[in-house]
Design a protein around this nucleic acid. Structure first.
Lengths: 121, 121
DNA sequence: CTAACATATGAGCGCAGGTTCATATGTTCA
DNA sequence: TGAACATATGAACCTGCGCTCATATGTTAG
């Protein structure tokens, strides 16, 4: 939080490789941005959310249909949709008593594709 | 595990939207593949690992230099490198007493780029 | 071989997060 | 307005996981 790691030496390498470390440090993005990036990917790190997203790839669905499709509780689906909504990945649309959710991001497909490419190598 | 969710109706929507649900179900990938995808993204869902990966974008580094750069314990770095190695994202190279790690995947940059694009919208 | 260094690994701790349960909020219809 | 339906939400429980600590493994120099 306060320190950038420059103040403590753990072994002799740090002295030997000081130039390398400093060069890398200068090119690192802001701490906050890397944290946000991790938070973003954390959303994809749960199979329930992955399934919900994949279902919405096809078309928008209401909460209880998602629950029915994925064999989940309505409450669990609603909780996960909340997470996805906060990450600005899905958006809701009310139609009578139902809430229909659809994808709200064009990067997801590209990210999933790269992920699958990695897994299928 | 056994059920596909087809055997339980949670509300009237399921009957009304049965065609939609069935169509989406047919297009969903294997359960296992979606699980693996979540496991893969879970690796990116930690800021320590994100930082390590980003550092290795620049050039290969040895364990204690990474620890020094990121202000982490050698043990913590080693544990995280193990996770990254098991996900086939980094590969080790021994040079004397040091282990140098480098990125072992060409998809990471694309995935990070899309993630940042999403965050900066 | 031994000492010093660099890294890996297992056990244990503490916290974050996903699910369930109960209940609140919101909507439609009679 | 009240009842039934659809969704949202808060609390509690429990598991997973990232860290620390101690120690094992591996490498080099003398």
């Amino acid at each position: 939080m306060s320190s950038s790691g420059k103040d403590q030496v753990q072994c002799d390498c740090n002295v030997i490789h000081e130039e390398v470390v400093n060069r890398v440090r200068d090119k690192m993005p802001e701490e906050e941005q890397l944290y946000d990036l991790a938070e973003f990917f954390k959303v994809f790190g749960d199979s329930s959310r992955i399934k919900i997203i994949w279902a919405l790839f096809e078309e928008e669905m209401c909460v209880c249909d998602i629950a029915y499709l994925l064999n989940m509780t309505q409450s669990a689906v609603s909780h996960q949709l909340r997470v996805l909504k906060q990450a600005r990945l899905v958006k809701p649309r009310r139609e009578g008593k139902n809430m229909f959710y659809s994808l709200d991001d064009e990067h997801i497909a590209a990210i999933f594709k790269e992920g699958l490419n990695h897994l299928n190598e």
